[in-house]
Design a protein around this nucleic acid. Structure first.
Lengths: 188, 188
DNA sequence: AAAATAAAACTAATGATATTAGTTAAAGGG
DNA sequence: CCCTTTAACTAATATCATTAGTTTTATTTT
């Protein structure tokens, strides 16, 4: 009933190529033309794998969010409390530094409200919730704290990437100080 | 020596049109074609005012940063300490909500390292420094704190805009709680 | 007032892009 | 061995940014 399977594998392969393109040259260079050139096929052939440029962006966003989640998940293993949050934070900014294009893609889905995109992001939220559970925040406090931590991590990564931090001041030190202050103030 | 002056005014007028376009339809819709249509001129005519699409993005970024700065500056008048930081934060997210496209443009300069873009951004950094001065942070602490506050404000605004906060939970309450926790932890 | 100048519009043409339509080759299931 | 489906292809179209060269027009200068 179906010849030439391995579609799932093929798509992953294409997304890996797109991810390399993004990391090397930025998201504005991941066009169907450039991606096709890298894969040695003609641009229209890509429509067999996803729905045009928008489809590519959506798939690449999900691919990136899941890739980020995997790295965050291993960073959160075997630690708890403040250390767990710091390790998670370190892993987050490390990912953004090592994969600037993929991280950028993470936020460039044509429709952020799309179910699949939301589901991928929800896993990171859940992970953050678990890591913050050790602080025994009561009621809505826990949910507010998740928003706060995510804001810090995304804001810091995004500003660092866009060259927002000009001072000659250690970046990781800034991050750790902010995270520690946030946790201290949240639990006090 | 010069006919047809008023270039400065013209450019501002064009940027206002581009800003409306951005706020109404998002930055992906601010193309030279769409902008020219809105202004009732032909796309090549825009090259008399700035250097192509990249030039438009750069100018719109500066325009947006300065517009944001003005609103932040008035919000920081007549208040000090925690209240000043909260008012500044409120004004920041309010701007991002009211002008999503212009806020987006703020981060879409072709070269964030560009001198003019950096200078515009520096004014916001200086304002943040002044607002945080009441906390009498010692040494590098003050600089780290500026990075922290900017990370929270940008991260929160960006995630809110991209639909990152799905929980039915008051947004402003989250922001104020995070800011308060950050300040408390920073000064403790 | 007339001429010179410079800004800012225009038309026309080019190249890159995404996209659609319709076609072809090939691999695996029946 | 044939059929079906996948995934490639070619050809054509529309939109976009951009460049080159031209024209209009207002202001400045003579």
């Amino acid at each position: 009933m179906s010849p030439r399977p391995k579609i799932g594998l093929e798509l992953t392969y294409i997304l890996e190529a797109a991810g390399e393109l993004a990391d090397q040259s930025g998201m504005q260079e991941v066009t169907l033309a450039n991606l096709a050139k890298k894969l040695n096929i003609r641009p229209p052939s890509l429509y067999n794998h996803f729905d045009g440029l928008g489809g590519l962006r959506k798939n690449l966003a999900i691919y990136g969010i899941e890739k980020l989640y995997k790295e965050l998940a291993v960073a959160a293993i075997g630690v708890s409390g403040t250390d767990a949050v710091l390790d998670l934070s370190k892993a987050y900014v490390h990912f953004a530094r090592q994969h600037p294009g993929i991280y950028e893609a993470t936020l460039m889905a044509p429709d952020p409200e799309d179910t699949e995109v939301q589901q991928a992001g929800a896993k990171i939220v859940e992970l953050t919730v678990r890591v913050l559970q050790a602080f025994e925040l009561k009621g809505d406090q826990a949910l507010h704290a998740v928003r706060g931590l995510r804001s810090i991590l995304h804001g810091f990564s995004s500003l660092e990437q866009k060259g927002g931090f000009k001072m000659a001041l250690d970046l990781d030190e800034s991050l750790f100080l902010v995270i520690r202050a946030f946790l201290k103030g949240m639990t006090a």
